[in-house]
């Protein structure tokens, strides 16, 4: 894969990016150029997946190297990032910031510069278009888990980002809800980057990146990467290798 110049404004570019938490390296000199439509990032717990997500999203800055999303530094220019990149967090209760549905939907638009009345009108129009007009004033605490996931996704979609980062999007959901959400994701025109430990959920991706101990272990189409991932995970599962402490 050719590495594009740092001035490329298409896609997500990491050049030799490293992240350390209190001296311990979590990501080691990561260089990636992500331009595909559907990208899966897989790895075990602690492999650095979530750190990579936070790095791409600009929630943390790299300690060395740099990260560009469509030519923008995601950790610096937060305002510009809002139209480029949205994040769907794993737990909706960590993402929903407002007590009512319409406030939650309107917030992102206000952040992007819309005035409150316009943002609220847009939020209501979206709810009406989705057949949920009666949700507008509802308290988010009364929504079911699946409804909260739906709300989180809509809040991001309203902001119209070109890329959406999904952090273990299907974990902990019942099967009908998983099917519904997976279907919703499949129809999205946005570039999706899915972070997961579940190989099945990225089997339709255009590209799969396997992280191991903060480094890229394998990178390619799912047909090349996933079978080896599955067999390695099976082997690890057979052994009692869980006695080591990190640090």
């Amino acid at each position: 894969m050719p590495l594009a110049s740092p001035f490329s404004d298409d896609g997500i570019l990491l050049q030799d990016a490293s992240v350390a938490f209190s001296g311990r390296r979590v990501l080691h000199g990561m260089s990636l150029h992500l331009t595909e439509h559907r990208i899966g990032i897989i790895g075990r717990n602690g492999s650095g997946k979530s750190t990579l997500l936070r790095l791409i999203a600009g929630l943390i800055a790299p300690d060395a190297g740099h990260v560009r999303v469509d030519g923008i530094d995601p950790a610096k220019d937060r305002r510009k990032m809002l139209t480029r990149l949205g994040i769907l967090f794993q737990n909706p209760d960590h993402q929903i910031l407002f007590p009512t549905v319409e406030e939650e939907l309107a917030f992102g638009l206000i952040q992007m510069g819309a005035d409150k009345a316009k943002a609220t009108a847009q939020a209501r129009a979206r709810l009406a278009a989705e057949g949920r007009a009666h949700w507008a004033g509802a308290a988010v605490s009364t929504l079911s888990q699946g409804q909260r996931h739906w709300l989180c996704l809509q809040a991001i979609l309203l902001m119209g980002p070109a890329t959406i980062l999904l952090d273990e999007p299907l974990a902990g959901l019942d099967l009908p809800m998983q099917a519904r959400l997976a279907r919703a994701f499949a129809t999205l025109p946005q570039r999706l980057i899915t972070i997961t430990h579940d190989p099945a959920s990225v089997s339709d991706a255009d590209r799969v990146i396997w992280l191991e101990a903060g480094k890229v272990h394998a990178d390619g189409p799912p047909g090349d990467v996933l079978p080896e991932f599955v067999s390695t995970m099976d082997q690890l599962g057979m052994s009692d290798a869980d006695a080591d402490l990190s640090g």
Binding site: R54, A57, L59, R78, R79, L82, G86, I87, F89, N91, H94, Q95, I96, L97, F107, G108, Q111, M112, A155, M159
Partner: peptide, 14 residues
């Protein structure tokens, strides 16, 4: 801390 992340992800308090 997680909520702060979510807030930052959508433009923070600026």
């Amino acid at each position: 801390e997680r909520v702060a992340d979510a807030l930052r992800a959508r433009g923070g308090t600026e």
